[in-house]
Protein backbone atom coordinates (compact mmCIF):
# COMPACT_ATOMS: atom_id res chain seq x y z
CA UNK A 1 0.00 0.00 0.00
CA UNK A 2 1.53 3.23 -1.14
CA UNK A 3 -0.06 5.94 0.90
CA UNK A 4 -2.61 7.12 3.39
CA UNK A 5 -4.63 10.18 2.66
CA UNK A 6 -6.76 10.59 5.75
CA UNK A 7 -3.94 12.14 7.62
CA UNK A 8 -3.05 14.78 5.10
CA UNK A 9 -2.80 15.82 1.52
CA UNK A 10 -1.38 12.87 -0.36
CA UNK A 11 0.44 15.06 -2.81
CA UNK A 12 1.83 17.26 -0.14
CA UNK A 13 2.79 14.24 1.90
CA UNK A 14 4.53 12.70 -1.02
CA UNK A 15 6.40 15.88 -1.74
CA UNK A 16 7.50 16.05 1.86
CA UNK A 17 8.37 12.40 1.81
CA UNK A 18 10.49 12.77 -1.29
CA UNK A 19 12.28 15.76 0.22
CA UNK A 20 12.86 13.71 3.34
CA UNK A 21 14.28 10.84 1.40
CA UNK A 22 16.30 12.93 -1.03
CA UNK A 23 19.82 11.64 -1.10
CA UNK A 24 18.74 8.45 0.60
CA UNK A 25 16.60 5.73 -0.78
CA UNK A 26 15.51 7.87 -3.71
CA UNK A 27 19.09 8.43 -4.75
CA UNK A 28 19.79 4.74 -4.52
CA UNK A 29 17.35 4.17 -7.35
CA UNK A 30 18.66 6.91 -9.61
CA UNK A 31 19.57 5.61 -12.99
CA UNK A 32 17.09 2.77 -12.72
CA UNK A 33 14.25 3.83 -15.03
CA UNK A 34 10.93 2.58 -13.71
CA UNK A 35 8.72 0.95 -16.30
CA UNK A 36 5.51 2.78 -17.09
CA UNK A 37 2.80 1.71 -14.62
CA UNK A 38 0.37 0.96 -17.43
CA UNK A 39 -0.02 -1.76 -20.02
CA UNK A 40 -0.50 -0.98 -23.72
CA UNK A 41 -4.18 -1.86 -23.31
CA UNK A 42 -4.57 1.09 -20.95
CA UNK A 43 -3.40 3.67 -23.46
CA UNK A 44 -6.27 5.77 -24.76
CA UNK A 45 -4.45 8.99 -25.57
CA UNK A 46 -5.30 10.26 -29.05
CA UNK A 47 -3.70 12.93 -31.23
CA UNK A 48 -6.26 15.53 -30.22
CA UNK A 49 -9.31 15.79 -27.98
CA UNK A 50 -12.35 18.02 -28.23
CA UNK A 51 -14.07 19.79 -25.37
CA UNK A 52 -17.07 22.11 -25.39
CA UNK A 53 -17.99 24.89 -22.99
CA UNK A 54 -21.57 26.09 -23.24
CA UNK A 55 -23.20 28.85 -21.23
CA UNK A 56 -25.88 27.81 -18.75
CA UNK A 57 -26.83 30.65 -16.43
CA UNK A 58 -29.13 28.73 -14.10
CA UNK A 59 -30.81 25.41 -13.33
CA UNK A 60 -33.98 25.95 -15.33
CA UNK A 61 -34.66 22.37 -16.43
CA UNK A 62 -36.32 23.09 -19.76
CA UNK A 63 -33.45 25.35 -20.82
CA UNK A 64 -30.91 22.79 -19.61
CA UNK A 65 -32.41 20.10 -21.84
CA UNK A 66 -31.59 22.29 -24.82
CA UNK A 67 -28.09 23.10 -23.61
CA UNK A 68 -27.32 19.44 -22.98
CA UNK A 69 -28.65 18.46 -26.40
CA UNK A 70 -26.50 21.19 -27.94
CA UNK A 71 -23.49 19.87 -26.05
CA UNK A 72 -24.13 16.26 -27.03
CA UNK A 73 -24.62 17.38 -30.62
CA UNK A 74 -21.10 18.76 -30.76
CA UNK A 75 -19.71 15.23 -30.51
CA UNK A 76 -20.11 12.16 -32.63
CA UNK A 77 -22.36 10.34 -30.17
CA UNK A 78 -25.01 7.92 -31.36
CA UNK A 79 -27.03 6.64 -28.41
CA UNK A 80 -29.90 5.21 -30.42
CA UNK A 81 -30.73 1.77 -29.07
CA UNK A 82 -28.24 2.08 -26.24
CA UNK A 83 -28.63 2.16 -22.47
CA UNK A 84 -27.12 5.33 -21.09
CA UNK A 85 -25.87 5.35 -17.49
CA UNK A 86 -25.59 8.78 -15.87
CA UNK A 87 -23.29 8.98 -12.88
CA UNK A 88 -23.83 12.25 -10.98
CA UNK A 89 -21.91 13.26 -7.89
CA UNK A 90 -24.07 12.51 -4.83
CA UNK A 91 -21.46 12.00 -2.18
CA UNK A 92 -23.05 13.78 0.80
CA UNK A 93 -25.73 16.35 1.55
CA UNK A 94 -25.50 19.68 3.31
CA UNK A 95 -28.47 22.02 2.95
CA UNK A 96 -26.08 24.98 3.08
CA UNK A 97 -23.74 23.67 0.41
CA UNK A 98 -23.44 22.90 -3.30
CA UNK A 99 -21.84 19.49 -2.96
CA UNK A 100 -23.73 17.52 -5.56
CA UNK A 101 -24.49 17.62 -9.26
CA UNK A 102 -27.73 19.58 -9.41
CA UNK A 103 -30.80 17.33 -9.73
CA UNK A 104 -32.31 19.57 -12.41
CA UNK A 105 -29.25 18.97 -14.59
CA UNK A 106 -29.51 15.22 -14.03
CA UNK A 107 -33.19 15.27 -14.99
CA UNK A 108 -32.47 17.43 -18.04
CA UNK A 109 -29.75 15.03 -19.14
CA UNK A 110 -32.11 12.07 -18.76
CA UNK A 111 -34.55 13.84 -21.02
CA UNK A 112 -31.87 14.91 -23.50
CA UNK A 113 -30.55 11.38 -24.01
CA UNK A 114 -34.08 10.04 -24.35
CA UNK A 115 -34.70 12.58 -27.08
CA UNK A 116 -31.47 11.43 -28.72
CA UNK A 117 -32.90 7.91 -28.93
CA UNK A 118 -31.47 6.05 -25.92
CA UNK A 119 -33.52 2.97 -25.05
CA UNK A 120 -33.09 3.62 -21.34
CA UNK A 121 -31.39 6.26 -19.24
CA UNK A 122 -30.38 5.07 -15.78
CA UNK A 123 -29.04 7.22 -12.95
CA UNK A 124 -26.44 5.39 -10.89
CA UNK A 125 -24.28 6.36 -7.93
CA UNK A 126 -22.56 4.75 -4.98
CA UNK A 127 -22.52 7.53 -2.38
CA UNK A 128 -19.18 7.81 -0.68
CA UNK A 129 -19.93 9.14 2.78
CA UNK A 130 -23.45 8.14 3.71
CA UNK A 131 -25.17 4.78 3.64
CA UNK A 132 -28.66 6.28 3.93
CA UNK A 133 -29.66 6.54 0.27
CA UNK A 134 -33.29 7.30 1.02
CA UNK A 135 -32.21 10.40 2.89
CA UNK A 136 -29.62 11.45 0.30
CA UNK A 137 -32.03 11.12 -2.59
CA UNK A 138 -34.87 12.94 -0.86
CA UNK A 139 -32.85 15.68 0.81
CA UNK A 140 -30.87 16.46 -2.33
CA UNK A 141 -34.01 16.62 -4.47
CA UNK A 142 -32.71 13.96 -6.84
CA UNK A 143 -35.34 11.46 -5.68
CA UNK A 144 -38.18 13.80 -6.67
CA UNK A 145 -36.55 14.48 -10.03
CA UNK A 146 -36.18 10.77 -10.68
CA UNK A 147 -39.84 10.20 -9.90
CA UNK A 148 -40.81 13.01 -12.27
CA UNK A 149 -38.68 11.65 -15.09
CA UNK A 150 -39.41 7.99 -14.37
CA UNK A 151 -35.69 7.21 -14.48
CA UNK A 152 -34.41 4.24 -12.51
CA UNK A 153 -31.80 4.78 -9.77
CA UNK A 154 -29.17 2.10 -9.25
CA UNK A 155 -27.30 1.96 -5.96
CA UNK A 156 -23.78 1.16 -7.17
CA UNK A 157 -22.63 0.39 -3.65
CA UNK A 158 -24.77 -2.74 -3.73
CA UNK A 159 -25.00 -3.58 -7.42
CA UNK A 160 -23.98 -6.99 -8.80
CA UNK A 161 -20.27 -6.90 -9.59
CA UNK A 162 -17.69 -8.45 -11.90
CA UNK A 163 -13.98 -8.72 -11.28
CA UNK A 164 -11.97 -6.41 -13.54
CA UNK A 165 -8.23 -6.84 -13.88
CA UNK A 166 -6.47 -3.47 -13.74
CA UNK A 167 -4.46 -2.34 -16.75
CA UNK A 168 -2.38 -0.03 -14.60
CA UNK A 169 -0.43 -0.50 -11.40
CA UNK A 170 -0.53 2.90 -9.71
CA UNK A 171 -2.07 1.38 -6.56
CA UNK A 172 -0.95 -2.20 -6.84
CA UNK A 173 -4.50 -3.36 -6.16
CA UNK A 174 -4.36 -5.66 -9.18
CA UNK A 175 -8.11 -5.89 -9.67
CA UNK A 176 -11.34 -4.24 -8.69
CA UNK A 177 -14.89 -5.50 -8.47
CA UNK A 178 -16.99 -3.06 -10.47
CA UNK A 179 -20.78 -2.80 -10.89
CA UNK A 180 -22.41 -4.56 -13.79
CA UNK A 181 -24.65 -1.57 -14.42
CA UNK A 182 -21.55 0.42 -15.32
CA UNK A 183 -19.64 -2.35 -17.11
CA UNK A 184 -22.63 -3.11 -19.33
CA UNK A 185 -23.46 0.51 -20.16
CA UNK A 186 -23.95 1.44 -23.79
CA UNK A 187 -22.69 4.88 -22.82
CA UNK A 188 -21.37 5.86 -19.41
CA UNK A 189 -21.67 9.55 -18.60
CA UNK A 190 -19.67 10.99 -15.70
CA UNK A 191 -21.51 14.06 -14.38
CA UNK A 192 -19.37 15.72 -11.72
CA UNK A 193 -19.62 19.11 -10.10
CA UNK A 194 -16.87 21.63 -10.85
CA UNK A 195 -15.08 21.56 -7.48
CA UNK A 196 -11.80 21.93 -5.71
CA UNK A 197 -10.71 18.97 -3.62
CA UNK A 198 -8.82 19.10 -0.35
CA UNK A 199 -6.66 16.06 -1.12
CA UNK A 200 -6.41 15.97 -4.92
CA UNK A 201 -6.59 19.65 -5.85
CA UNK A 202 -9.60 19.29 -8.14
CA UNK A 203 -12.44 16.79 -8.46
CA UNK A 204 -14.09 16.41 -11.84
CA UNK A 205 -15.12 13.60 -14.17
CA UNK A 206 -12.18 11.30 -13.34
CA UNK A 207 -12.42 11.59 -9.55
CA UNK A 208 -16.20 11.20 -9.85
CA UNK A 209 -15.54 7.55 -10.72
CA UNK A 210 -14.82 6.81 -7.08
CA UNK A 211 -18.59 6.54 -6.88
CA UNK A 212 -18.67 3.49 -9.14
CA UNK A 213 -16.49 1.49 -6.76
CA UNK A 214 -18.88 -0.47 -4.54
CA UNK A 215 -18.58 0.55 -0.92
CA UNK A 216 -20.18 -2.69 0.22
CA UNK A 217 -16.86 -4.26 -0.75
CA UNK A 218 -14.41 -1.38 -0.40
CA UNK A 219 -15.97 0.49 2.51
CA UNK A 220 -17.21 3.97 3.23
CA UNK A 221 -15.80 6.50 2.45
CA UNK A 222 -14.32 4.32 -0.33
CA UNK A 223 -11.76 3.36 2.23
CA UNK A 224 -9.64 0.95 0.23
CA UNK A 225 -9.09 3.56 -2.49
CA UNK A 226 -7.93 6.22 -0.07
CA UNK A 227 -5.73 3.68 1.66
CA UNK A 228 -4.19 2.60 -1.65
CA UNK A 229 -3.58 6.21 -2.66
CA UNK A 230 -6.00 8.76 -4.01
CA UNK A 231 -4.18 9.71 -7.20
CA UNK A 232 -3.27 6.15 -8.09
CA UNK A 233 -6.85 5.02 -7.51
CA UNK A 234 -8.22 7.73 -9.81
CA UNK A 235 -5.84 6.59 -12.53
CA UNK A 236 -6.40 2.86 -12.03
CA UNK A 237 -10.19 3.13 -12.07
CA UNK A 238 -10.30 5.37 -15.12
CA UNK A 239 -7.92 3.14 -17.04
CA UNK A 240 -9.91 0.06 -16.07
CA UNK A 241 -13.28 1.32 -17.26
CA UNK A 242 -13.44 0.08 -20.82
CA UNK A 243 -16.88 1.29 -21.93
CA UNK A 244 -17.96 4.15 -24.23
CA UNK A 245 -17.72 7.30 -22.16
CA UNK A 246 -18.89 10.86 -22.13
CA UNK A 247 -18.56 13.61 -19.53
CA UNK A 248 -20.81 16.51 -18.58
CA UNK A 249 -19.55 18.83 -15.83
CA UNK A 250 -21.98 20.90 -13.77
CA UNK A 251 -20.18 24.24 -13.76
CA UNK A 252 -23.26 26.38 -13.29
CA UNK A 253 -22.46 26.67 -9.60
CA UNK A 254 -19.09 25.23 -8.65
CA UNK A 255 -17.38 24.84 -5.30
CA UNK A 256 -14.20 26.66 -4.31
CA UNK A 257 -12.03 26.54 -1.20
CA UNK A 258 -12.25 23.47 1.01
CA UNK A 259 -13.99 21.17 -1.48
CA UNK A 260 -15.41 18.67 -2.11
CA UNK A 261 -17.74 18.95 0.90
CA UNK A 262 -17.12 22.11 2.88
CA UNK A 263 -16.22 24.65 0.24
CA UNK A 264 -18.29 27.63 -0.88
CA UNK A 265 -20.44 28.08 -3.95
CA UNK A 266 -18.87 29.86 -6.90
CA UNK A 267 -20.88 30.88 -9.92
CA UNK A 268 -19.35 30.05 -13.29
CA UNK A 269 -22.45 29.57 -15.46
CA UNK A 270 -21.31 26.84 -17.81
CA UNK A 271 -21.67 23.19 -18.71
CA UNK A 272 -18.54 21.41 -19.92
CA UNK A 273 -18.74 18.48 -22.34
CA UNK A 274 -16.31 15.98 -23.84
CA UNK A 275 -15.48 12.35 -24.49
CA UNK A 276 -11.90 12.40 -23.19
CA UNK A 277 -12.10 12.64 -19.39
CA UNK A 278 -8.55 13.94 -19.13
CA UNK A 279 -9.27 16.73 -21.59
CA UNK A 280 -12.53 17.58 -19.83
CA UNK A 281 -10.88 17.66 -16.42
CA UNK A 282 -7.94 19.68 -17.69
CA UNK A 283 -10.40 22.21 -19.09
CA UNK A 284 -12.35 22.19 -15.84
CA UNK A 285 -9.15 22.91 -13.94
CA UNK A 286 -8.31 25.79 -16.28
CA UNK A 287 -11.82 27.17 -15.79
CA UNK A 288 -10.95 27.33 -12.08
CA UNK A 289 -7.60 29.01 -12.87
CA UNK A 290 -5.71 25.87 -11.90
CA UNK A 291 -2.89 24.48 -14.04
CA UNK A 292 -4.00 20.91 -14.85
CA UNK A 293 -0.45 19.74 -15.34
CA UNK A 294 0.26 20.75 -11.73
CA UNK A 295 -2.48 18.36 -10.58
CA UNK A 296 -0.71 15.09 -9.95
CA UNK A 297 -3.20 12.66 -11.40
CA UNK A 298 -3.97 14.83 -14.45
CA UNK A 299 -0.30 15.17 -15.22
CA UNK A 300 0.12 11.39 -15.09
CA UNK A 301 -3.09 10.78 -17.05
CA UNK A 302 -1.81 13.08 -19.78
CA UNK A 303 0.96 10.56 -20.45
CA UNK A 304 -1.33 7.73 -21.52
CA UNK A 305 -5.02 8.20 -20.82
CA UNK A 306 -5.94 11.44 -22.59
CA UNK A 307 -4.91 14.98 -23.35
CA UNK A 308 -4.39 17.65 -20.74
CA UNK A 309 -2.04 19.79 -22.83
CA UNK A 310 -4.07 22.70 -24.19
CA UNK A 311 -2.15 22.57 -27.45
CA UNK A 312 -3.83 19.23 -28.11
CA UNK A 313 -7.35 20.36 -27.23
CA UNK A 314 -9.96 21.52 -29.70
CA UNK A 315 -12.18 24.05 -28.01
CA UNK A 316 -15.83 24.06 -29.10
CA UNK A 317 -18.65 26.32 -27.98
CA UNK A 318 -17.57 29.33 -25.95
CA UNK A 319 -13.93 30.21 -25.36
CA UNK A 320 -12.52 28.94 -22.10
CA UNK A 321 -11.16 32.36 -21.29
CA UNK A 322 -14.59 33.95 -21.45
CA UNK A 323 -15.70 31.84 -18.48
CA UNK A 324 -12.47 31.37 -16.57
CA UNK A 325 -13.00 32.11 -12.87
CA UNK A 326 -10.42 32.56 -10.17
CA UNK A 327 -11.38 29.86 -7.66
CA UNK A 328 -9.99 30.06 -4.15
CA UNK A 329 -8.05 26.98 -3.09
CA UNK A 330 -6.55 25.77 0.16
CA UNK A 331 -3.14 27.31 0.70
CA UNK A 332 -1.40 23.97 0.11
CA UNK A 333 -2.68 24.05 -3.48
CA UNK A 334 -1.90 27.70 -4.20
CA UNK A 335 1.12 26.68 -6.25
CA UNK A 336 -1.24 24.97 -8.70
CA UNK A 337 -2.98 28.23 -9.53
CA UNK A 338 -2.41 30.07 -12.80
CA UNK A 339 -3.15 33.29 -10.96
CA UNK A 340 -3.10 33.88 -7.23
CA UNK A 341 -6.35 33.35 -5.40
CA UNK A 342 -7.93 36.62 -4.39
CA UNK A 343 -8.30 35.37 -0.85
CA UNK A 344 -6.35 32.14 -0.28
CA UNK A 345 -7.81 30.00 2.51
Amino acid sequence: MSGVTYWGSPMADRRDFLKLMAGGAAAATMGCADPDPWTPAAVRKTDRSAVAVLPAPDYDEARLVEVVRDGIGMFDLDVRGRRVVLKPNLVEFDPRGVINTHPALVAATVEAFRLEGATEVVVAEGPGHRRDNEYLLEASGLGAQLRDTGARFVDLNHDAVRRVELKTSFTGLGHLYLPETVLDAGLFVSMPKLKTHHWAGVTLSMKNLFGIVPSAIYGWPKNVLHWAGLEGSILDINAALDVPRFNIVDGILGMEGNGPIQGEAREVGILLFGEDPVAVDATGARLMSIDPLAVGYLSKADAFLGNADDALLEQRGDSLESHRTNFRVLSMFEEMKTEPSAEPE
Binding site: V4, Y6, W7, D13, W220, V224
Partner: peptide, 24 residues
Protein backbone atom coordinates in the same frame (compact mmCIF):
# COMPACT_ATOMS: atom_id res chain seq x y z
CA UNK B 1 0.20 18.02 7.53
CA UNK B 2 -1.95 16.10 9.99
CA UNK B 3 -5.29 16.96 8.46
CA UNK B 4 -7.52 14.94 10.78
CA UNK B 5 -7.52 14.75 14.54
CA UNK B 6 -7.81 11.08 15.31
CA UNK B 7 -5.91 8.80 17.63
CA UNK B 8 -4.53 6.53 14.93
CA UNK B 9 -3.07 4.18 17.53
CA UNK B 10 -6.54 2.97 18.50
CA UNK B 11 -7.52 -0.25 16.80
CA UNK B 12 -11.10 -1.03 15.92
CA UNK B 13 -12.53 -2.83 12.92
CA UNK B 14 -12.22 -1.89 9.24
CA UNK B 15 -14.61 -2.23 6.33
CA UNK B 16 -11.95 -4.09 4.37
CA UNK B 17 -9.16 -6.17 5.85
CA UNK B 18 -5.87 -4.30 6.13
CA UNK B 19 -7.36 -0.80 6.12
CA UNK B 20 -8.34 1.82 8.68
CA UNK B 21 -10.92 1.40 11.48
CA UNK B 22 -14.24 3.22 11.09
CA UNK B 23 -17.30 3.82 13.24
CA UNK B 24 -19.81 1.53 11.61
Amino acid sequence: RKAVELDTDLTGWPWATGTFSWVE
